[in-house]
């Protein structure tokens, strides 16, 4: 029968042959984490490709990753901090608004890019099988890279303003995770909906714009009357923006109840997003 070679060969036992049953799926599709894990290389490579392509043929390259949140933050600082004098809970307004835009950018870029990711990779989806969830996840991953680079600017600003982080910073990963969970939940909804209804492609910029002002990025939540704050925090972005700012600057308006509401909404979005994505995924190749 020959010597078993490095790859698959018949001398391998049947147990190594994965059996696939192809049939119409019924009911709710469960999430196959093992399969996603098997395709982790593809996830990283798609993310790396997105980062690479984004800065290829640009003169400034990765500098754009830094400028993207810095420029709006500077503009916000002038307009809202200097002229409108919005409250910033006692922190320097630039630092206040920069922390906000930084985490907001992670979120808004993630949902925009991931939202368009399936449609943008239509040729892949109609030609090859792989867990489709890899595509929006890799977009979120690529945006995370930008976020980490912007982190360097934040460190620089904190040195300039002589504001070393306190112990709160230990909770920073938790809030980053919350931001990612929210972004992935929304991305799953948007990307799957976008496959069928391209309207979302056009609606997304407006959605992001409106959402920005419904989120404490340029102002502090303290602007919202106490009794409405729990309604306000149904916006899941409230939780991670205020939380992230609190963990970095050590000050904020975040209450436990607000955080719970936001995190709860984020969790619901993620679960429903996963269900919607998984159930519509089987039709992607037919409608894309």
């Amino acid at each position: 029968m020959g010597i078993p070679n490095v790859g698959y060969s018949i001398s391998r036992p049947m147990t190594n042959n994965p059996q696939t049953i192809i049939r119409p799926s019924i009911g709710l599709a469960y999430l196959d984490l093992r399969e996603i894990w098997r395709y982790r290389d593809l996830l990283f490579m798609l993310a790396a490709r997105e980062i690479q392509l984004r800065y290829k043929q640009t003169a400034f390259g990765v500098v754009w990753a830094v400028l993207q949140p810095l420029l709006p933050a500077a503009i916000f600082a002038v307009i809202f901090g200097l002229f409108a004098k919005l409250p910033s809970n006692g922190s320097p307004y630039l630092l206040f608004v920069f922390t906000g835009t930084m985490i907001w950018n992670l979120f808004s870029q993630a949902i925009t890019r991931a939202g368009n990711s399936l449609v943008g990779n239509a040729n892949l989806i109609s030609k090859v099988y792989f867990p489709r969830i890899i595509v929006p996840l890799s977009s979120v991953g690529a945006v995370l890279f930008d976020f980490l680079i912007t982190g360097l600017i934040l460190v620089a600003l904190m040195i300039v303003y002589r504001m070393p982080p306190g112990l709160n910073i230990l909770l920073f990963p938790a809030f980053l995770l919350l931001a990612l969970v929210t972004a992935i939940g929304i991305s799953l909804w948007l990307s799957a909906l976008n496959v069928k209804y391209r309207d979302f492609m056009y609606a997304m910029p407006f959605l992001v714009q409106v959402w920005l002002y419904a989120t404490p990025v340029v102002y502090a939540s303290s602007l919202i009357p106490q009794k409405y704050r729990w309604i306000y925090s149904i916006n899941p972005a409230v939780g991670f923006v205020e939380g992230f700012r609190w963990s970095v600057l050590g000050r904020g308006t975040l209450s436990a109840s607000m955080l719970f509401v936001s995190a709860g909404v984020a969790a619901v979005t993620l679960v429903t997003g996963l269900i919607y994505f998984r159930t519509t995924e089987r039709k992607f190749a037919d409608v894309i």
């Binding site: 698959y8 042959n17 059996q19 696939t20 192809i22 109609s126 090859v128 099988y129």
Partner: peptide
């Protein structure tokens, strides 16, 4: 259908082994 790119409407296929496609 055999590569799982799209789902069948009815019927089934059982495949033993790793499938790759050069579509």
């Amino acid at each position: 259908l055999l590569t799982k790119i799209t789902e069948p409407t009815s019927g089934q296929a059982i495949i033993n082994g790793r499938v790759a496609s050069l579509l």
